[in-house]
Amino acid sequence: MSLLELTDICSGYGHFQALFGINLRIEEGETHAVIGANGAGKSTLLRTICGLIPTDSDKVRFDGQSIGQLPPHKRVGLGISYVPEGRWVFPSLTVAENLMVGAHSRRTGLWTMDKVYELFPLLSRLRQRQAFSLSGGEQQALAIARGLMSNPRLLLLDEVSLGLAPVVVEKIYEAMPAIVESGTTVLLVEQDVGQAMKFADRITCMLEGRQVLEGSPGEISSEEIFAAYFGV
């Protein structure tokens, strides 16, 4: 049984349909990257998994359980943590308080406050700073650290590199191996294909709400990706 099974996902916003029959299986321990251009439906897919967009109950199965109708806060309790595009840190709370709120679900495990500070040393000296005063890269590190505080089985990372300088992106991706080694299954959405290829065991490429390519980075050539990415 896969950790996450998506069947015929057709989510959207109101009358706007963004996804057209997505099927996806994620195995426990796998690192899976979804790539694609702007508007391909990548974020919509993650939002359907974390519960911000509800769908038919059976269409999202997590560890064998149908969760498509479950609200987001209950999915956190099951072990799904979503690090949203645009970070969404709590601006008036300090870094330490952001992390404490991240642990609200009381799921215990490997990740504790000390462990995430170890993972992102740059956050360690910012503990008492309010999150709004952090730089974009620091906020992204905080958002990921906060997401880990619920000790998720499945971590959803949405556009980690968006709006960040390449040096900063490198720094944040340095944390990835430790997250993967901890046994957490990672599903990440990236526009930066290079980063995605480096870390993912498997890659799905999306185009206008449909899957157009799937495979492991070793199997697929950059020409195939180029073609799938732009739909040529």
Binding site: C50, P71, H73, K74, W88, V89, F90, L93, V101, S150
Partner: peptide
């Protein structure tokens, strides 16, 4: 803290497991 997190960003608070 959950009160203040929700005041800051209600959707993000839900994603932390806050009902």
């Amino acid at each position: 803290r959950a009160f203040r997190a929700t005041a800051d960003n209600q959707r993000a608070a839900q994603l932390m497991g806050i009902d």
